[in-house]
């Protein structure tokens, strides 16, 4: 189950509660597939008896019958053996498949079910299936381009699953202060193009970053972040520490700086998962500078920067660490996945 924010969760609950239980009615309309020849007619009769309402099925049946006849004619010409292979075919089936065909064809909405059935008939079931395969392949091709991104987004373990292991193994160590990583919707490398003051409706000072997405390492199957792609410009809103001079803000990402930022969505805006501390910065030598919070990413080879040093991002709340190995991103992604999994999403 995916995590939903407040409005989404409430919407889902409301719609779920609003949906009536129709199972008995549906079940009463089911007949074994071998007997579906007259099934629909009896469905309509059953529904009328039970509800006293008209389902508009007779007219559909007319369309469906016409479509079925058309489909049969096409099929008879194209494949004489079809009737032997598809004894269960019904007008209902043809129309249902037609809907699928419409989906395969790019969700073109047919004017009527008859037209839809004709679309299926024209393509034939196999044609629809073939089209479906092409669409499926296209859909399987991730929207974000790179194979690595696809791998992360699909939830597969990284090729080297050291990261996953590292994350899983160290959850106990960092679970109290890293746990918010479970809220990560997007982990990307960004270059900060502009940073400016912003004030949200709550009156608290915010910094508005205009950033270019250099790379995407992790993406949840999320509501708001799906449209983000490598090369996009995005807006990141982050709480400021209240310092009057923005340039003195101790957590601020610098213009021109390159950062790895776990992002979440709050109030419809992208915001760092940890807004009240320095973000992970990529130094010119390729090293990753990260704050204390990421305890699981600290290993024996991690260098510790002095508090408030030039390289220490001026972090007043603790030490800053630096790692220069290539596994850093993999470990971080593994950590996010581990916390996400542990949160039950």
């Amino acid at each position: 189950m995916k995590r939903k924010n407040g409005i989404e969760r409430e919407y889902r609950e409301m719609m779920t509660q609003a949906a009536p239980d129709l199972w008995e009615r549906i079940e009463s309309g089911l007949e074994d597939h071998a007997e579906t020849g007259g099934a629909e007619s009896s469905h309509a009769e059953t529904d009328r008896k039970e509800t006293g309402r008209i389902l508009h099925l007779p007219r559909r049946r007319m369309y469906g019958a016409a479509a079925a006849v058309a489909a049969v004619l096409v099929i008879l010409v194209a494949a004489p053996g079809f009737l032997e292979m598809n004894k269960t075919g019904s007008s209902s089936t043809a129309r249902f498949a037609a809907g699928g065909a419409a989906y395969d064809m790019g969700a073109t909405v047919p004017e009527t079910t008859a037209a839809a059935a004709e679309m299926a008939a024209e393509g034939g079931m196999d044609g629809a299936a073939a089209a479906g395969g092409a669409i499926a392949a296209e859909m399987a091709e991730d929207e974000y381009g790179e194979a690595a991104t696809q791998q992360y987004r699909s939830g597969d373990l990284p090729e080297s699953n050291e990261g996953q292991n590292a994350g899983s193994a160290s959850l106990s160590a960092g679970q109290y202060i890293e746990t918010d990583l479970k809220d990560t919707r997007l982990l990307c490398q960004v270059t900060i193009e502009k940073a400016s003051d912003s004030e949200k409706a709550d009156g608290r000072p915010h910094i508005r970053y205009e950033a270019r997405v250099d790379d995407i390492f992790y993406m949840s199957e999320d509501t708001d972040t799906e449209a983000v792609e490598k090369g996009d410009s995005i807006i990141i809103e982050a709480a400021a520490d209240g310092t009057e001079d923005l340039q003195q803000d101790s957590f601020m990402m610098k213009e021109g700086g390159v950062y790895i930022v776990p992002l979440t969505v709050r109030d419809g805006a992208l915001e760092p998962v940890f807004p009240d501390e320095p973000q992970i910065e990529i130094k010119e030598d390729g090293g990753y500078l990260f704050p204390d919070r990421y305890v699981s990413l600290q290993d024996e080879e991690t260098a510790v920067m002095q508090d408030g040093s030039d390289e220490g991002q001026g972090n007043p709340d603790g030490q800053v660490h630096i790692r220069k190995d290539e596994r850093f991103i993999t470990d971080l992604v593994g950590l996010i996945k581990a916390y996400t999994a542990s949160s039950g999403d």
């Binding site: 089911l30 209902s92 249902f96 079931m125 479906g132």
Partner: peptide, 18 residues
Amino acid sequence: SEFFIRLWNAADTYRSGR
């Protein structure tokens, strides 16, 4: 209701992976 009844009747037209 009609949707689920049709799904029952037309299940064999579904192609997985779509």
